[in-house]
């Protein structure tokens, strides 16, 4: 049976049929994509099928990304690539300056054929120092991060209770984890999920 990774590779290498095949898998996305076998990498070592950095430019279906370690990555987005920016999104929402993490298949020419691209995603923990109706002020390692509630997007998960749009149970002084989308070049984040232990 042809693996998801093989289909993704063929989508990049070979054109039409491969792209159709990858798309026919449905979204290569979030949970489903992670059953795909990845090559062995020595624990502790860099994962060649992963990239991080900020978008410098976008040409056709390729993101030119400068890694924080100053290494450039060419990240190819295909029909089946899953993109996230505060939630599932489309390729046209990617912007120069966005930070990203990407996972996919490294091609022989060094291009990363993307299974998933997460734009501006952050996952930070800290103490709630203040709450207003629109914002949570988070003390994250001594730095304030302004976390914005986004109507229709932001949810809270109180331990194992079902996700809720009601963030009013959060309290000043408690510790939370906030998954969200960074607003580039600011200390501000749009909230996707607040994880609260109670």
């Amino acid at each position: 049976m042809t693996s998801r990774r093989q289909l993704l590779k063929s989508a990049v290498l070979g054109g039409g049929a491969g792209v159709v095949a990858a798309t026919a898998l449905g979204s290569l996305g979030p949970e489903a994509a992670f059953g795909a076998a990845a090559p062995d990498v020595e624990p502790g070592a860099p994962d060649p099928d992963f990239a991080e950095g900020r978008i410098r430019s976008i040409k056709d279906n390729t993101l030119l990304v400068l890694g924080s370690n100053m290494v450039f990555h060419n990240i190819r987005v295909v029909d089946g690539t899953s993109l996230w920016k505060l939630g599932p999104t489309s390729f046209d929402q990617a912007r120069p300056g966005d930070g990203l993490y990407a996972r996919g298949v490294r091609m022989p020419d060094g291009v990363l054929a993307a299974e998933s691209v997460w734009l501006n995603i952050v996952n930070i923990k800290g103490h709630v120092s203040n709450i207003t109706s629109e914002k949570i002020h988070l003390d994250h390692k001594g730095q304030e991060v302004l976390c914005h509630r986004v109507a229709g997007k932001s949810i809270a998960v109180y331990s194992d209770a079902p996700p809720s749009a009601d963030l009013s149970l959060l309290r000043v002084g408690q510790h939370v984890q906030i998954l969200g989308a960074w607003r580039p070049d600011t200390n501000e984040v749009d909230i996707a999920t607040v994880f609260s232990p109670h």
Partner: peptide, 22 residues
């Protein structure tokens, strides 16, 4: 992020897991 994204989407943020020695 490199390790987590091998077993789940980064957008999930938190997941139940089992930890063992290899």
């Amino acid at each position: 992020p490199a390790a987590y994204s091998r077993i789940a989407s980064l957008s999930t943020g938190l997941r139940p897991c089992e930890i063992s020695t290899p």
